[in-house]
Simulated scan of single mutants.
Amino acid sequence: MSAHIHLTPLHDISAADAAAWHQVVTASMAHDLPGVPTPGPEQIHAQLTKPTLNSHRLTWLATGATGSPVGVAGLRLFTSPGRDHLAELELHVAPAHRRLGTGSLLLSEVVAACLAQDRRSLIVEAAADSPGEAFCEKRNFRQALALNHLILRLDHLDEATVSQVAEAEHPGYRLTGWTGTVPDDLAAAFATAKNAMNDMPVGDLDYGTENWDADRVRAMAQVIADRGDTLLTLAAVHDGGAMAGYTEILLPRGTAPRAQQYDTAVVPAHRGRGLGLWLKTAMVRRLRAQHPGVVEIETDNAEDNVHMLAVNHRLGFRSYRRTREFQLDVSAV
């Protein structure tokens, strides 16, 4: 049946290409992830056409015998030192066209591209107990990390907990925040704090390391702004000038009611003081005051990241789905 499928590498992506991609992704997510908001057409167009940070993207569109879109694959190839062995896959097949060889054809193209780009590891995320998980297991991917996705409903907060945490004293620390690009006087300290994420639990993923400096944190903010999203950051700064920790929230373009938690990290020398919970609680207050259209926040944590899970549960996050990160040893294919 796969003989009736035509694969097209996408280079200069047109509005029609982006619309076809959106059609497949929407159908796939509605089937596999009921209740999870699907990206809008503008988000998809920005994802496909705007630059990414320290990486580049390859994309393919699969069409059926009538020319209708039936599958898509996006491959992000990381380029920074410490991660230039790694590629990340997004693959969707419309439910009505599954089990016809489309996914296998797309994966073959992706693996060939990884080999051509000298990548040893390919990672992909799939919902637990989903068709995507079964697809990975049948094609020699191994499960490398289990993730717990949680939701915080801002109208279900325990106000007593929010007040208690937000108003607790943290001698020697102050909170500061910004939207978009970090202020110049904090850029170097922020980059140092970002490097604290390198010890986050990643299971058995061959994830590499990310090295941040002031230029890179500015570039990250620009990438997010260019695709139309808004990045909010709150940081805890020590009296000595070091940034002790930070938390980031992404607001998707438009008026999406669900915000996405990006990084939350506390630098090792400042852990054990409740700064993570303090930062996240202050961010909740900021969202409610400045962005009343946001009604919930989604985050995910490795299932063995017991500390951050405890922080999130204390604030009121509740589990609502699980995903798995799978990894393919490309050199062994």
Rank of each mutant, 00 (worst) to 15 (best):
I297G: 04
W278L: 01
H4Y: 09
Y262M: 00
S130A: 04
T233W: 02
D199I: 07
T192G: 09
Q43C: 11
D204G: 06
R271N: 02
V306K: 05
D184Y: 11
Q23D: 14
T38I: 14
D263Q: 02
E109H: 15
T59Y: 09
Q222I: 04
V202M: 05
E90P: 01
V311H: 07
E125F: 06
P95G: 09
Q222N: 07
L234K: 11
A128R: 12
Y246G: 04
D17F: 14
I5S: 08
A214N: 08
A127W: 05
H85Y: 02
G101C: 07
A166R: 08
L105K: 14
P39I: 13
V217S: 03
L315I: 15
L287S: 00
G208N: 02
L33M: 15
L231D: 05
G64P: 10
P9Y: 04
E137F: 04
L205Y: 03
G101D: 13
T79A: 01
A235E: 12
F317E: 06
A269M: 10
G172S: 15
R139K: 08
A259P: 00
M1D: 07
V333W: 12
R120Y: 07
H307K: 10
D329V: 14
I13Q: 04
A187H: 09
E133C: 00
R83S: 06
M197E: 07
T176Y: 02
V294Q: 03
D229I: 01
I297M: 08
R253V: 03
F317V: 03
G64F: 10
T59K: 11
T264M: 01
R324P: 04
A219C: 04
I13D: 01
A236C: 05
R119F: 06
A188G: 07
S28W: 05
M220D: 00
T264A: 00
P41L: 04
N211K: 04
L150I: 02
G240V: 12
P51D: 00
W21S: 07
A242V: 14
N148P: 01
A189P: 03
G172E: 14
F317D: 04
V36M: 11
S2Q: 15
Q143W: 05
A269D: 14
D158C: 03
F190A: 15
T63K: 05
T209A: 09
A219G: 05
S104Q: 15
L234D: 10
A242K: 15
A27L: 15
T247W: 00
G316W: 13
A219R: 12
A160L: 13
L48Y: 08
E90N: 10
P39C: 15
A3N: 12
A126N: 09
Q47L: 09
Q23R: 14
L175H: 07
L75Q: 04
F141N: 03
T233Q: 03
R142D: 06
K50Y: 01
D32M: 12
L122N: 06
T233K: 01
C114W: 02
P69W: 03
P183Q: 10
K50P: 00
L150W: 00
A193C: 14
E296T: 15
H31G: 02
A219W: 04
A128F: 08
G240F: 06
T79C: 01
A65I: 07
N54H: 11
D239I: 10
R218H: 12
G82W: 13
P41Q: 06
G74M: 05
R285M: 02
W212D: 01
R318G: 08
T255D: 15
S2P: 12
F190K: 09
